[in-house]
Structures are given as C-alpha cells and as structure tokens.
Design a protein around this nucleic acid. Structure first.
Lengths: 340, 340
DNA sequence: TGTATTGTGTAAAAGGTTTTAGTAAAAGGT
DNA sequence: ACCTTTTACTAAAACCTTTTACACAATACA
C-alpha cells in the first residue's frame, strides 16, 4: 500500500524534462522561467500530485508559517476555557491577515521544554509564564522569538492587563457596600511542576484585593483565600467545601469567571438567592458572563485585544529586530446581576 | 544582533569532543552510548541551548507530532464558533494522550490547497468538505492521511451525524403542533470558491425538514428557505430582513444554534414573545444553548465525541493501514424554552 | 588460544528543498 | 561584426538531522 514513496521534486523535474531547480523556480520565482516552461512544470506537478515538502522547505528558509501558542495546560483544558476561545480569536484574526497557521502547544509528556523544542513554529506566544521560567528560558539561547502574555518580561515583548487595579475595584465595591465576610477564590495549578504558573496573574489579583482590604481597614484573613481549580467545577466545589466547613460568606471574589459561575451554581443548589444572600464578582468578563442568569458581575479585561496585540508584537519581532515593548491594558469593573 | 546562527548538532559535538552521531544518540538512543558520554553531551547541549531542529528531524523521520484541523473558514470564524470550541476540545483530549500538538489551518490567501500543502502536519482532520473536493483530493495522491468530518467519504475514514433524522424530528415537532408558517435558515458560505462547503451537512438537514413537511402534507416553499451566515449576527440579520419583507412566521428552524440565537435576539428586538409568538429550534446544541434566556430548543449532536472519534480514527490511520471506517452518530431533539 | 559477542563510537548517506554561482544562447547596441 | 545585456536554465552547495554500516576494543565463551 505505502509502496510508492511521496513524490519529490526530481520526479516532477524528470517528467517535465527540466532540472529540479527549474521546478523550484516554477513554484517560487516564476519570473525566472519562460512562461511556457512554468506552465509545463506546473502541469506535471499537478498530474503527479506534487507539493513541496514543508519540512525540507522550512529547513532551508527557517520559516514555516506557523505560530505557536504555548499554554502550560492540557489542550483539553485550553479548549474548554472560554478565555482562550476569545484570546485565540484575537490571535486568529491577525493570523488570517498574515497567512499564518495557529498551533496550540501544551506540555509533551509533562515537559513544556520538550514541547517547545519539538514544535515546528516561527515563534511563540507564551501565556501565564514569566520570561525567565526555567522551561522558557532556553528559547532565548535558541533565538526563537517569543512574546509573553500574562507574565513578566524584560527583554522580550509582553502583554498584560492591569490586574491589580481591576481586583482592587472589585474588592472595594464589596467593601464599600459593607461586606466584611468575603470568600476569595484564587488559582490553584493542578500540575506539580508548574508551581509558578499564573503565580504572576493570581498574585497580582490577590494583591489588588488585599490593597482594598487595607484601604478599608478590614483585616485580611489568609484562611478565606482558597486555591481553586480554574474551572466551573472548581468554583462549585470550592464554595460547597467552604459551606460544609461552616463558612457563611456574604460575598465571593473569584479570580476567574469560570470559578465565579461555579459559585453561582453552588449557591443556587444551597438555596441561596443571588444577589440578596450572596454577592459574587468574577474576573475576565468572558462572553458567557453577560448571558447567564443572573448575569455575572465581573472585572472586564480586553481578552480579544490582548490576543491581537500579542500576535502583532510577535509578527513585528519576526520581521525585524524591534525594541521589546511592554503593553498593559486597562481593566474595568462591570456590575451586572450578581451584585446588588 | 542575529549575528550568531542557531546552534547545530556539530557545535555540540565539537564542544563535547564527539561526533554528531553521538550527539544524536545521546538524545534519541542513550543506550547506544556510555552513560558518562551521554551526560557530557547533554551537558554541552544545555550550555549551548541546543535542541534538535524540528524541521530537519521531520524531514528524515516523516513525522512531526502535529495534526492539522482544516476548516474552510477564517481562524477568526473558527474560534468564534462554539461548535469548534467543543469539537477541538474532543480532539485535544486525545492529542494530550498521544503527545500531539494541534494546528488549526484555514485557507491561505484564499486557497485551501496551498494551506494544505504548506502545513507541517502528520495528518488532517477535514471539516465540512467531501473527500473528493478539488482542493482536498490532492492529499490522496500525496499520501497524507486524513479523515473527513461532516462530509462524504468512501476511501478514507469519516465521522458524521444523522443530520436528516435530527432535522426531521425538529420540523415534525413544529408541524405536529400545528405550525404551517415556518421560516427556515440554512447555511450560506461567504467565500465564493467554497461553494460546496457544508453543502453536505446543510443539504442533509434541509432534506430532513422537507421530508417532515411531506409527511405532514404541508407544501414546501423554497422562498421560506433563506441562506444565512453561520453566526449570531447572520441569524439576527436574516430574521430582521424577513420581517421587513413582510414575512410573519410562527416558527423558525435554523440549521445552527448560532443562527437560532440570533433569531431569538432579533425577535426580542421586535417585541415578540418567545415561545408564545414565535417558536425557534436550532441545531447542534452548543453549550451556550442551555444557558441563554430563554434556553434554546435544539437538535443535539455529540460534538465532543465527534472530535474524539475523528482524532482516534486519524491516529489509527497514522499507525497502521486500517480499513476506512464511517461512523454516524445519533442526534436528539432537545426541547427547552424556545418551544411551547 | 582462538572465536563470538558486546560495548562504544564514527563516517557517510539520505531526507527534499532553495539558493548561489555560473553557462550558453539569444537579443540589443553601435 | 563585436561587445554587452538579458533570458532561460542548470550544477552544486547548503540547510540539519537520523540511520545504516562499519571499526575497534574489550569482554565472554569454549
């Protein structure tokens, strides 16, 4: 069945009665050839079903037309997360214009470094890791261009949002309304070796909450900060657990909408009325947040724009050696129906 | 800046005082080498920031560890579509297990064929096109494995759902409830050269509607079938247009949930009460459908499972020459709040 | 002691393309 | 009629790795 090998450039050349060089020209630099010859070559290629081998081509040109989005999570988790749906949409819109394909890369066999090394891409968009993370740093030596999203970077471009201000606004809103008994859900990372993933983002958000507590003179309680899986189920479970442990918060701050929506569901199960018995504020403003019932109050971040800027910075880096630029996008507190 | 080239295997070999072959062995077949030597080589590689060039590696091994999902739409549209979010999630779950990365490929510069030819993948999952589509067919000659989803195929594996039965059930439900004035929204493809995209799926669904009309003795009216962009906005616009043209349907059948939800929104704008003044049934049962207000009645298809099966069939094909298998998954009418 | 085996490493070929430098013929200039 | 361009095409090098076949030494076998 697989008896015949893939057809190569020399077979096309033979069939068209020219050199392999001519075949290459016919595809890439037709002006270097007589029009008739080009046509004859292309015809032969069509009949043989020939197309230049992308790997061989990339080996020489150092360009493959693919950009990688690297996220320290499973592909399953990435595609389940509405944040990434919007984020990838922003990236995709620019890829469409630039004729790039989009590769989602996640840890290979547990190793991000191996995944990075074996991905056939022109550059990476790296989400949720710092520039100097030990699995990311080798990219530097290898001179593979990359940009950092939701992480710290100095020598490469980065895109972040003003997590702290957004979190501050959310906490301040609840505190101003008299809440003193607030449960806070922050990121927990499932995979052990990724201990510092999202540390940056989660840390900044929690820090914003803390600053608001301080400003309102409300004592901060570490036992009210519960690490939670970044998912609907995670939020649901965390709230249920807290409830069973006897905690009776009047409000919940969650560092992601997914968690927050899980809390909303858990509250409904417990017979709590939102927002009367419990107020909830999420983070991200995922499209779904505006559509649920009750609609979720949350901190909006421009996720789509974030993707757009990330890929724009990467493309600029690929085309020339630009100064690394750090972009910080604003956040905004959106009050819907899970707050009074 | 880019003065230094990427570090290659020979530089590592030189630094470690061995041959390039030894370096290759250190990475791929450590048992062929003395343990100390392997360690010395790996150390040298680490210091130099070396990793084997994926393109060169793939050129020889004919394997790159990437599978491509080919959809005849822009990346922007793909990632905006909740259908694909779920579908890719199913694919991703298997890719996680198999250590594969996921490449989303869309037309390059308008040409699907060029996009296919230049994608560095081990195989394709092709959505919404038939096996013998003129831009897909060359894959055959080139012996690139692929599976077809939502399209016809004979010599390669395929995954489809029972579109006709699902559509029949939806139409029958409305007809049984006495509706005679039903507006039907079907697929319109934006890009001209993709005239037959989704023809298969759209055609099958419309055919199911028609069969129900026939069974209920209701005359079919082609002017009540309006081609609509597969999006929220598309559905909204189509319904608004029909309304302005004086059409006053009592129910709407849409071949996708996105369209159906657009109709729901348009109806609200027009002051219509759903389901009292207008009943709507979508298709797909996107996660969002259960969450909107009112929740959407629709035809459920197992999208996640569809992705899973597609990638499983592809992986099987990559590993051995298996018989092409055609899987057809069941659909189910789900009545929520947009029907009485 | 001689032979077979195992362990450790290397040279060279293969994988398929693009690019560079160059050749030969035709066209253009005076 | 001679020199310069231009046109049309080709040979060979380069891209970087892995694999195959082979070499040499050390050990095991009998």
């Amino acid at each position: 069945m697989m008896a015949t090998r893939r057809v190569t450039i020399v077979e096309v050349a033979r069939k068209a009665g020219v050199s392999p060089t001519a075949v290459s020209f016919a595809f890439n630099k037709p002006h270097r050839l007589n029009g008739d010859t080009t046509e004859r070559i292309l015809q032969a290629a069509r009949e043989l079903g020939y197309a230049p081998n992308p790997h061989a081509r990339a080996l020489l040109s150092q360009r493959i037309g693919v950009i990688g989005v690297l996220v320290p999570q499973s592909l399953y988790a990435i595609y389940a997360n509405p944040f990434f749906a919007t984020f990838l949409q922003g990236i995709g819109s620019v890829c469409d214009d630039q004729d790039l394909a989009l590769l989602t890369v996640s840890p290979l066999d547990g190793s991000l470094e191996r995944a990075i090394a074996s991905a056939p891409v022109d550059g990476f968009i790296i989400v949720g890791l710092n520039e100097h993370h030990h699995e990311v740093a080798p990219l530097h030596k290898r001179r593979v261009p990359f940009v950092i999203v939701d992480g710290d970077a100095e020598t490469v471009p980065s895109v972040n949002i003003d997590d702290e201000s957004g979190a501050y606004a959310a906490a301040a809103h609840l505190l101003a309304n008299g809440h003193r008994n607030i449960l806070i859900l922050t990121f927990e990372t499932p995979l052990e070796h990724l201990e510092d993933i999202f540390y940056g983002v989660g840390g900044r958000r929690v820090h914003g909450y803390q600053r608001a507590f301080a400003d309102y003179g409300v004592p901060w309680r570490d036992d009210r900060l519960v690490p939670t899986l970044t998912s609907f189920e995670g939020g649901e479970q965390s709230f249920l657990n807290a409830w069973e442990a006897g905690t009776r918060p009047g409000a919940v701050l969650a560092v992601s909408d997914a968690m927050a929506l899980g809390v909303v569901k858990a509250a409904a199960q417990l017979g709590l009325n939102i927002p009367r018995d419990l107020e909830v504020i999420g983070f991200d403003d995922v499209p779904l947040a505006a559509l649920t019932n009750p609609a979720l109050s949350t901190v909006h971040q421009p996720v789509y724009r974030k993707g757009e800027i990330a890929i724009e910075l990467l493309v600029a880096t690929l085309e020339a050696n630009v100064e690394p630029k750090s972009v910080v996008l604003p956040t905004e507190l959106i009050l819907r129906a899970t707050t009074r």
